[in-house]
Simulated scan of single mutants.
Amino acid sequence: MKVKEVSQLTGVSVRTLHHYDDIGLLTPDRTTQAGYRLYSDDNLATLQQILFFRELGFSLKKIKELLTSPAFSRQEAFEMQRKMLLEKRKQLDSMINTIEKTIQHGRGELVMTNEEKFKGFDFGENPYEQEARERWGDNAVDESNKKAIQFGPELGEEMNRIYFSLAGVRHMEPSSDEAQARIGEWFTFLNKMGSYSLEAFAGLGEMYVADERFTKNIDQFGEGLALFMRDAMAVYVKKGK
């Protein structure tokens, strides 16, 4: 299958498949003289495995280490993924049960305790905050948190709107007028929260791909979105100079 056919079959963008090839994570079995990538059934099985790992939060670097290990067993990996997905489903089931009870509570059909209202949530610490403090200092992070409180829920809603908007055009060329207009909204939004120069904006785009935590969070809105945003941000910066 050609790369476009694989993209249509799996929902993974062509840009992401090219990226997987570039980093040696998923190299097609054949390449034609014209340069077309040709994926075998074995390649598709590997891609399925990669997507299971991605769904479970594994970084691309870690996935590559696992797949290239001499001790790697595809069947054992599936067994492990199944176990982890069942644990994930257990947590999701708990959260669904909580929201169903909350709806009934709102209708007056039952009474929930405060503890029951938060069952199933993961209240882990922000994984980025300590790193941000080390990079940019307490003042910068405190100011950002202050603005987040000031804008309230509207801030998250606006952020999600822009992410979904960008995800809708991620299959376009990053240099297209539509992509550039939407990435411009992202630049404007970020400067509501802080002060981003064009150079800092480009550097942030690189981090979206280099740091797997960012990639995972952004790609929740659409597979390959982080990579698309990086490229679109680079074009935006180049045009702005």
Score class of each variant (00 low, 15 high):
Glu76Phe: 02
Met84Tyr: 02
Val169Thr: 07
Phe121Leu: 14
Gln81Thr: 09
Lys88Leu: 04
Phe164His: 13
Ser94Asn: 14
Asp93Gly: 12
Gly124Asn: 12
Asn97Ile: 07
Phe151Gly: 12
Ala181Gly: 15
Gly108Ile: 02
Glu185Lys: 03
Ile96Tyr: 10
Lys90Pro: 08
Ser176Val: 05
Lys117Leu: 11
Glu100Ala: 05
Ser144Arg: 12
Glu116Asn: 04
Met95Val: 15
Glu125Asp: 14
Glu100Ile: 05
Glu129Phe: 00
Ala148Gln: 11
Ala181Phe: 09
Asn97Arg: 13
Gly152Met: 00
Trp186Leu: 11
Gly124Cys: 06
Asn126Ser: 10
Asn139Leu: 04
Phe78Thr: 06
Gly108Glu: 05
Asn114Leu: 14
Leu92Trp: 05
Glu87Pro: 06
Glu154Thr: 04
Glu129Ser: 05
Glu134Pro: 07
Arg135Met: 08
Gly152Lys: 10
Pro174Arg: 10
Lys119Pro: 04
Met159Arg: 12
Thr98Pro: 00
Ala132Gly: 07
Glu158Ile: 03
His105Ser: 08
Arg161Trp: 08
Phe121Ile: 14
Ala132Met: 11
Glu157Cys: 05
Arg133Tyr: 08
Gln81Tyr: 00
Asp138Ile: 06
Phe187Cys: 05
Glu79Ser: 09
Phe72Ala: 03
Tyr163Trp: 02
Tyr163Val: 01
Arg170Asp: 09
Met159Ala: 15
Val169Lys: 00
Glu87His: 03
Ala77Val: 02
Leu190Gly: 00
His171Ser: 14
Phe118Ser: 15
Glu129Gly: 01
Pro153Gly: 13
Glu100Cys: 06
Asp93Val: 06
Gln75His: 08
Ala179Gln: 03
Ser165Cys: 04
Gly168Asn: 14
Glu76Gly: 01
Gly156Asn: 13
His171Ile: 05
Asn97Cys: 09
Thr188Gln: 07
Glu178Ala: 14
Gly156His: 09
Lys146Arg: 15
Gly152Ile: 02
Thr113Gln: 07
Met112Phe: 06
Ala181His: 15
Ala148Phe: 06
Arg107Pro: 03
Phe118Arg: 13
Phe151Ala: 03
Lys119Glu: 02
Phe189Gly: 00
Lys83Gln: 10
Met84Asp: 14
Leu166Glu: 02
Leu155Gln: 09
Asn145Tyr: 08
Gln75Ile: 09
Phe72Thr: 03
Asn97Met: 11
Arg182Ile: 00
Glu79Ile: 12
Leu155His: 04
Gln104Asn: 12
Gly156Arg: 08
Met112Ser: 00
Asp142Tyr: 04
Glu87Phe: 06
Phe118Tyr: 15
Ala140Lys: 13
Lys146Met: 02
Leu190Phe: 01
Met80His: 07
Phe164Ile: 01
Glu134Phe: 06
Phe121Gln: 13
Lys147Gln: 06
Ala77Thr: 10
Ala132Asn: 14
Lys90Cys: 08
Gln180Phe: 14
Gln81Pro: 01
Thr188Lys: 11
Met84Glu: 14
Ser94Ala: 13
Ser175Asp: 12
Met95Arg: 01
Gly184Lys: 03
Arg170Met: 15
Glu79Phe: 04
Asp177Thr: 09
Arg74Ala: 15
Leu86Val: 09
Ala148Asp: 05
Val169Asn: 05
Gly152Cys: 00
Glu109His: 11
Ala71Met: 10
Glu115Asp: 13
